[in-house]
Nucleic acid binder design. Structure first.
Length: 327
DNA sequence: AATGGCGTCCAAACTTTTGC
DNA sequence: GCAAAAGTTTGGACGCCATT
């Protein structure tokens, strides 16, 4: 079953009793949709699913309540890597500040601490509400551990904004917690092959190393697989650890991933290097990346706004000087 | 039977090249 | 300079086969 179909089936099983035939019809529709029509259908489905989750919650007696975010703990299994400078989080916070919280989070009464709650999903909304000093809108439901991780995984799958490594570590954590593969597959809305790859990557890449790299949203499955493969060598692990410990290491997670991958592969490392160029006061002004074919100098326009223009104006003169030294 | 590894195929998004 | 074509990357799905 496809990832999307797993997701759909979970929701549709809930509706099947009330509306026989829905599942089969949806599967038939899935097989024929393609291209832009399918993309539009996915968007509509996404909206449908979110509203269905909430409607179902409300139908089963749950209601949306305002909670003090300080009373809400994170799920016992974390999925997303914490990130201090996540632009999406900043945007979410700004949206909540100006428009309020549009979509409630899902919580359950904390199994161990009376009066407290545990979030299935909506961790970033909780963090934003905390920082803004606002109450967080939440649907409170009684969920067992399995239902909690399923709800958490389904929400992530609907949004599709977890990176490959976040999903992989989430899968590994679930497996380490004793969940069997079908449950993890349902929680991640994935199939056995994909899950197998995710877990093999999560096991091959030491967790502290993966967290040091960060979510790396642009690094897809194949490159993580490549890195996982390279990290079979202890030397490669040491090289990567060394690179990530560099105090000059960029805060950009994707760039860190590329550095780690390069370090893991000596050949790659020899072909491509990136360094930060600083002025005499130690302020980073440019990032210089070099490989066999190109050299890329990226000036930080915020650190020194007019410097890039200054350099560009002098390119002709610099080239003339270069040529005269060559001859 | 369930699980995992691997290769292949497809679609979409993105980048680079080519021709006008 | 711009648009179209070609190439590349990525994510996802599927089937086959070996192993447990």
């Amino acid at each position: 079953m496809t990832r999307r179909n797993v997701l759909k089936s979970i929701f549709e099983e809930q509706l099947a009793a009330a509306n026989p035939g829905t599942k089969a019809e949806a599967q038939g529709r899935d097989r024929v949709l393609a291209g832009p029509v399918r993309t539009m259908s996915l968007t509509l489905d996404k909206i449908e699913e979110e509203s269905r989750v909430l409607q179902e919650a409300l139908a089963t007696g749950a209601s949306v309540v305002d909670l003090d975010p300080q009373l809400v703990d994170v799920s016992f299994i974390r999925d997303r890597f914490p990130s201090a400078d996540d632009p999406a989080f900043a945007a979410l916070k700004e949206s909540m500040r100006s428009h309020g919280q549009e979509v409630p989070i899902l919580v359950r009464p904390h199994p161990g601490q009376g009066g407290r709650y545990q979030a299935a999903y909506g961790h970033r909304r909780i963090a934003a509400a905390r920082e803004l000093g606002l109450k967080v809108k939440a649907v409170v439901r009684s969920l067992d551990d399995q239902q909690l991780v399923l709800a958490q995984g389904i929400e992530n799958s609907v949004r599709r904004d977890l990176s490959f490594i976040e999903r992989a570590i989430f899968a590994k954590t679930l497996e380490d917690s004793g969940y069997d593969r079908p449950v993890i597959m349902a929680a991640l809305s994935t199939d056995k092959t994909e899950l197998s790859k995710m877990i093999s990557v999560a096991r091959a890449v030491p967790e502290d190393l993966a967290k040091a790299i960060g979510s790396a949203p642009k690094a897809g499955r194949r490159r993580w697989l490549q890195l996982a493969d390279l990290l079979q060598s202890e030397d490669a692990v040491r090289r990567v650890e060394l690179v990530l410990a560099d105090p000059d290491m960029t805060r950009d997670s994707d760039a860190r991933f590329i550095r780690a991958l390069s370090a893991a592969s000596e050949r790659e490392a020899a072909r491509s290097t990136t360094r930060i160029w600083k002025n005499s006061a130690g302020t980073p002004l440019a990032r210089i990346s070099r490989d066999k074919k190109t050299t890329v100098v990226r000036f930080d326009e915020k650190a020194e706004p007019d410097f890039a223009g200054f350099v560009l104006e002098r390119l002709d003169a610099l080239y003339e000087e270069f040529r005269s030294r060559q001859s």
